[in-house]
Design a protein around this nucleic acid. Structure first.
Lengths: 109, 109
DNA sequence: CATTCATATGAGTAGTCGCTTATATGATTG
DNA sequence: CAATCATATAAGCGACTACTCATATGAATG
């Protein structure tokens, strides 16, 4: 019995997570939530995105279970279900920094 | 310069990596490379994708440094630059399985 | 060198994504 | 309950993506 990785099952589900994380603004939202739960308005303020846009992204993250809403009066606070993702993101980032991109052969004609 | 980017630096680069990983076929290609370097033809066979399509995906992965080409006669073998990515993918996958997706409120009206 | 094999590139296209401009829901306050 | 605040949804548009077909490059072989 090989690894998940070796026989590649779960690829579809994994790719969907990555698709969510592939949007810079969504990634910023998640990063901002790292510290503590935040209201939508607070996220709007912090990111500089429109309220509509933030709501749009939050819905996608919410439906995937990447963030969890929490009603507090008229406000909705969004939280990370666990902190593990922050560590994962950090691992990924430090690994990504080690990647050597090949030369981009630009011809001076 | 008040920025979230200071908090979440590297977000742009990270999101680009995730975008590459967000395509199921690319993820499968990477998985297949986990064990050993493979020729393009071998990847085509293994994935069932068209040769053109595989070449297209390989270019993106190559340009990002996620795979490395290695000429062997008329063949080009593609390899992972390091095995770390396999561990990262596996970490991500097992974390993803713990995510609880919210109810999708279907009204039977 | 001409042909064949292995891979790469380019043009075109259907579908998806992210964002914007309205508008709706639902809670709070007077 | 009317008005306002906080958030969510809907429709539409431009940009991007993944794929296909056609073709190009470059190595191996006769």
């Amino acid at each position: 019995m090989n690894d998940i990785v070796t026989d590649c099952h779960g690829v579809k589900a994994l790719s969907e997570i990555f698709k969510l994380l592939s949007e810079p603004n969504r990634l910023r939202i998640l990063c901002g939530l790292g510290m503590e739960c935040q209201s939508v308005g607070s996220i709007v303020e912090e990111t500089g995105l429109s309220q509509t846009n933030v709501s749009f992204h939050l819905r996608l993250l919410r439906e995937a279970g990447l963030v969890r809403p929490e009603k507090r009066g008229a406000f909705v606070y969004y939280c990370l279900p666990d902190q593990k993702i922050l560590a994962l993101l950090d691992d990924f980032r430090s690994w990504a920094e080690t990647l050597e991109k090949p030369e981009t052969h630009k011809k001076a004609s």
